[in-house]
């Protein structure tokens, strides 16, 4: 049972890091970022190359920074540029970006799947709760949880966090009170993309890399954001862990139904509590 809980936690934490970025961007910009999965996939490939040519630790720093820079550019020349247009324009932009990024990755790295081994320090397994468990998965759980706790603390206690929460609650009122909402938006999209970058690097030694990996995980990430409450970071965190656990338990208890678990969870939530676990509260 301990192994199943750890398995649920490992996948849940990966979803958590990814969905945190998606929830933050939706909370502030009101944009469903369809390119989030593609950014995660791009990050996994950048991380793959950085690990191959430098080291995993370098990849862990470089990739989120590269993706955060890309996010800031996306916000400045994409989302902000289209902010006064119909929501469908935003959807088209982010959806179109998915194809562009996927083609870019296929051109540079090819269509074949790739795999990355954990760095020597994280290879092998450790004893946890009396069972042997892969060290890399424990590392992933620790890093993911640490980053998300730091994110919540930063949003709650820092001045920038206050501005972001204010902008997410009501963009116009926040602007009237002197908050630079464009700057807050750039920070959030940069941060959200950086988190997709972190998730991509962490996924490298955990899963296999393929140009399709973003699409596969994006659906589950959307479910997490909906179940957690649109735009709510705290809600997405709880939902990611619940989904990870539910997946792990279902694949043991009801293997033939395990593929339906995320959708069943979303269905039940939409019927019983449409606002999600935490409504629209940012953090």
């Amino acid at each position: 049972m301990a192994v199943q809980l750890l398995n649920g936690l490992a996948f849940g934490v990966l979803l958590l890091v990814l969905s945190s970025g998606l929830a933050l961007i939706f909370g502030l910009r009101g944009v469903v970022n369809f390119a989030h999965g593609a950014l995660y996939m791009l990050a996994a490939y950048i991380g793959f190359s950085a690990t191959t040519h430098l080291s995993f630790w370098a990849a862990l720093v470089i990739t989120p920074l590269a993706l955060a820079s890309l996010g800031i550019v996306l916000d400045r020349y994409g989302l902000r540029f289209l902010s006064h247009r119909a929501p469908l324009d935003m959807v088209l932009l982010t959806f179109g970006l998915t194809f562009v990024i996927t083609d870019l990755v296929e051109t540079v790295w090819g269509e074949q799947s790739r795999s990355l081994d954990p760095t020597a320090a994280l290879a092998g397994s450790m004893s946890v709760f009396g069972v042997r468990y892969p060290t890399y998965r424990l590392f992933l759980i620790a890093v993911g949880l640490l980053v998300c706790v730091a994110l919540v603390v930063w949003l709650r206690l820092s001045r920038t966090g206050l501005y972001i929460r204010a902008s997410s609650s009501d963009r116009r009122v926040a602007a009237v009170f002197g908050v630079d909402v464009d700057r807050a938006s750039a920070i959030v999209v940069g941060l959200g993309s950086g988190l997709a970058g972190l998730a991509g690097v962490l996924a490298g030694p955990y899963l296999s890399l393929s140009p399709n990996m973003g699409v596969e995980i994006l659906i589950q990430t959307f479910i997490v954001v909906v179940v957690g409450g649109l735009g709510s970071l705290g809600g997405a965190m709880i939902a990611a862990l619940v989904l990870g656990m539910a997946n792990a338990i279902a694949s043991v208890g009801f293997p033939s139904l395990s593929a339906y678990v995320p959708y069943a969870l979303m269905l039940v939530m939409l019927l019983l509590r449409p606002q999600g676990f935490a409504g629209t509260r940012t953090a």
């Binding site: 199943q4 750890l6 996948f11 596969e216 997946n247 792990a248 043991v252």
Partner: peptide
């Protein structure tokens, strides 16, 4: 993507 639950069985 994650075969952990299957592997443990």
């Amino acid at each position: 993507t994650d075969f952990g639950s299957y592997i443990s069985q």
